[in-house]
Simulated scan of single mutants.
Amino acid sequence: MEKQETIASLNTEIASIQKAIEEQKNTLKEKKTALKKAEKEVASLEAKKQRRLKQRLC
């Protein structure tokens, strides 16, 4: 009986770890999406800045 309890306990622990991994994957995906959005925003602002500088020089 003890071995069955150990097996059940390990299966529960494995399921918990798998759930945590999935949650971390989702968090990573969200962070990567946010990073891409921020990078695009920075690139856009840099482009606007460059255009303004060119206009001032002309």
Rank of each mutant, 00 (worst) to 15 (best):
R56H: 05
E2K: 09
K36W: 05
L35R: 11
L35Q: 13
T33P: 01
K36L: 10
T6S: 08
E46G: 03
N26K: 12
E46H: 07
E5L: 02
A8H: 02
L45G: 01
N11Q: 13
S44Q: 14
K25N: 06
E23L: 05
E2H: 09
R51S: 02
E23D: 11
K54L: 04
E2A: 12
E39S: 10
I7Y: 03
L28K: 03
K49F: 12
V42H: 06
T33M: 07
E30C: 04
L57N: 02
I17F: 08
I17H: 07
I14K: 02
Q55I: 04
K40R: 11
A43N: 13
S9F: 06
E13L: 10
K32C: 02
I21C: 00
T12Y: 09
K25Q: 13
A34E: 13
E41W: 06
E22F: 00
A38K: 13
E30N: 13
K54F: 01
S9I: 03
E23H: 04
S44D: 15
I21Y: 00
E22L: 07
N26G: 05
I14C: 02
K29R: 08
L28G: 00
V42T: 13
E30W: 00
T6Y: 14
L28I: 10
K29W: 03
K37A: 15
A43D: 09
A43G: 04
R52N: 09
T6L: 14
A47E: 12
Q55R: 04
E23M: 05
R51W: 02
Q18T: 03
Q55S: 09
M1Q: 14
S16K: 15
E46C: 03
E5T: 01
C58N: 12
Q4D: 07
L10M: 13
E39F: 05
K32H: 06
S44R: 11
E22S: 11
K3M: 15
K31H: 04
